[in-house]
Amino acid sequence: MALSKQKITVLIIALAVGVVVVTKLILSGSSGTVDPVAARTKGPKQAKVNIVEFIDFECPACAYGAKQLKEYTDRYPDDIRVQVKYYPLMNIHHHALQVASYAECVARQGKFWPFFDMLMPQQSQWSPLINADGVFDEMAKGAGVDMNKLKSCLSSEDVTTTIMSEKALGRSLGVQSTPTYFINDQMVVGTKSLEEELNKYFPKISK
């Protein structure tokens, strides 16, 4: 009788593992791939480290991650290629979608990186504002954007579609939180893991 109980135990464990494996297989079958070519990219194509970042511009860890990543891209500009993709967390950050729309419209004028480099270090100042459009306008102006084009772009539905389709892509790749990076296709979540992964390719940057 004890053997029967043990056999049933083994059967249940095998069944549970089987269900998990099948579910993972189904999910991996429906997942997308990270598009390596897009407007929000910097760094040479032949760079040895290719990073795709899924970002919510209002998430504090993303601001820290942007600072960390900038230290590496400034020091190793020929070795790192970075691409930013949208993953706005609208349920916890009330500017998330609006700031992503600004970023997309600015990117369509080829000014994403100057805008990004102003946006992220000042996150703690604009994030608590009820309406931060004025701040985003000023940053866009500072980045050299045509404001008329920007305004008409912001009212375009196509912008939201682009943002949400990138978020859907992220979800299909298993992204749940921000910042999530794919470093040479290796998924890395959070700034601590980002630094650990980057230190596999580059010497540690002392602070």
């Binding site: 998990v20 579910t23 979540v189 893991s193």
Partner: peptide
């Protein structure tokens, strides 16, 4: 358990890191 297993382990690793309790 199931929800964590079917998604990439890196997501739960990020959660654990946020608690700052375990060695690397």
């Amino acid at each position: 358990g199931f929800d964590k297993i079917i998604s990439p382990y890196q997501n739960f690793l990020y959660v654990i890191q946020a608690y700052q309790m375990f060695p690397d």
